[in-house]
Simulated scan of single mutants.
Amino acid sequence: METKANEILFVSHNASRSGAPLILLGIIREFKNLYKGKLKVLLMEGGELQEDFQSLADTYILYKQPRFILQSKKGFAAKFLKLLYNIKARIILARLKKCRLVFLNTITNGHIHRKLISPGRKFMTYVHELESSTKFGTDAIALTTVLKHSNYFWTGSEVVRDFLVEGKQVPPGITEVVYSSLADINPNRHYFSEFIDSLKKQFQIPTDAFIVGVVANAEWRKGFDFLFPLVKIYLEKYPDGKAIFLWKGYNTGSKSYYFDTFDLKKTGIDKRIILLPHDASNLATIAALDAHLLLSREDPFPLVVLEAASLEIPTICFRDAGGSPEFVSGDAGICVDYGNLIQVAEAIYELENNAAKRIEMGAKAKSRLSQGYSSKDAALRLLTLVEKM
C-alpha cells in the first residue's frame, strides 16, 4: 500500500548530541528513504546535531540559545525577547501549516504542541521520560496538552508505557513500545584502536587495568554522586582489584570540577577515576570499556546501553531505575538492587575476574540488537503507523 504524500513534521526539544535527538535523527534518516511525502523538522533549540537535521529535511530552529539562558533575562530584555520569539514562532508555524501529521519527540514539547493544534492535524508523541524528567522538563499545562491532544504514543520502554497508562491514565490502546534505536548496530571496534591507545597513554592506564565507564551527564538523575562512594567501596572490598573508573560527560570547566577533584585527592581515589567532558567521541570512549556502568536513578531506556551492546560490552545497572533491565535481562549484563553500591562493586569484580562470562554477556547483548533496536526497524514501524493514521 502506497502512503499518502502528506507532509510530516518532526519536533525535537533540542539538537544536542544526546539520546532522544540522536534516536530521532536516526529514524528520520531511515524514514526519508521509505516515505514519498515531504518531511520537515522543528528544533525547539539548536545544538551540535542541527546541521545533521538540516541535511535531511527543511529544518526550523526556534531558539538559537538554550531556553534557560533566555528565561534568565529580566525587565525590558525579557519582554523584548518574548515578543521577538512570539513573532518568530508565528512565521515558522505559518510555514508548517501543510503538515498533517506531527511527530513530537519527548513529552516536553507541550508548549509548541498547543500552538500546532489545528483541524485535521494528528499528533503522535514518542515518550522517553519517566517521573523526574517529566516533572522538571515540562509544566502542568504543557503536559496536559500532550496527554490530551496526542492521537498515539510511542514509549521508549515497557516501564515508560506503564508510567503513561498507570500514572497518567493514557488509554493503553493508543500506546506502543518502540525501544530506543541505533543508526548503526554493527560498528567496528577496531576502528577505535588508535583512540583507545591514545586515551590509555594520556591517563597512564595500566595495560592490565579493567576499565569501567559511565557515559552520561554528571547529574543527580544519572547518579554521579554514587561514583565516589562506589569506588571507595570497591577498593576497600577488593584491594587487589584493577578497575579504573571513567565518567564521560563531566563539565571540566565548571566550579564543581575543582570541588570534585579536591575530594578525589583527599580521599586517595584520584588515581582510579577519570573525568572526561562530553564531546563527539562518546562511541570511541565506550569502545575503550571492558564493562559499561549505568548508575542512573531514573533512565527510561538510555541509548548508551545499546551503543555498548553494539561493541559487545555488557552493562551493569540498577533494577527499578528505568527500562535498561528490559534489555539486559540477566544475560546481557548484570542487574543489581536499586542504589546498592556493594552489589555494583561485586558485579564489577565478577566481570573483571571472569572474562568468559563477560565475553558471553557482551555477545548476547550484541545479538539482541537485531531484535528491533535499529533505526531502520523504528522507521518501518513509523511507516506502518503513518499509513493507518
Rank of each mutant, 00 (worst) to 15 (best):
F262P: 04
N14M: 03
A183Q: 12
E387Y: 06
V212K: 01
Y338F: 15
E51H: 15
I69Q: 14
G46W: 04
Y238I: 03
F210A: 01
E312G: 03
D299S: 09
L164T: 03
L164G: 00
R319I: 03
R189S: 15
S375G: 13
R319F: 11
Y349G: 09
I141N: 13
V212P: 00
I117Y: 07
H190T: 12
E2H: 11
A332R: 13
I61G: 12
L306P: 05
I87Y: 12
F228L: 15
A287F: 00
K79F: 11
D58C: 10
T3G: 14
E30T: 00
D139M: 09
D197T: 10
Y60D: 07
L116F: 04
I112L: 14
K366A: 09
H13T: 06
S198A: 12
G137S: 11
N340E: 09
D263P: 00
V177D: 07
D299I: 04
S133Y: 08
L382T: 02
S133M: 06
S254F: 09
T134Q: 03
I27A: 07
E129G: 08
K40E: 10
S18A: 15
V146S: 05
I185L: 11
F301L: 10
R368C: 03
K242H: 11
Y191G: 05
F210K: 02
R272Y: 14
S55T: 13
L43Q: 05
S310E: 07
K265Y: 02
N353V: 09
E45G: 08
D290C: 01
F224G: 02
L83E: 13
V165P: 04
Y258W: 10
T125R: 00
K32A: 03
G120C: 09
D197N: 11
A5W: 03
N109E: 08
L294W: 00
P119Q: 11
L303V: 13
K40H: 06
K36I: 07
L383V: 13
D377T: 12
K82R: 12
D299A: 10
S367C: 08
T144E: 15
L34T: 08
V177R: 07
Y338C: 13
I334M: 11
P206H: 09
A287E: 04
K248F: 12
G167P: 05
F153K: 04
Q50K: 13
T3D: 15
F136Q: 12
K168E: 08
K32H: 05
S18Q: 09
L294Q: 04
L246P: 00
L49P: 05
V11T: 05
A308P: 02
G19I: 05
E307H: 03
R368Q: 15
K271R: 14
P300M: 09
E30H: 04
W154H: 07
E346K: 15
K376Y: 12
I334C: 10
C335E: 15
S133P: 01
A5V: 14
A183Y: 07
E346C: 11
V215I: 07
F259N: 13
L104F: 13
F210C: 04
G372K: 08
L383G: 06
G330K: 07
P277F: 02
N340R: 10
E350A: 13
V11P: 01
K248N: 09
S18F: 05
P239N: 12
K32R: 12
R221K: 15
K40D: 01
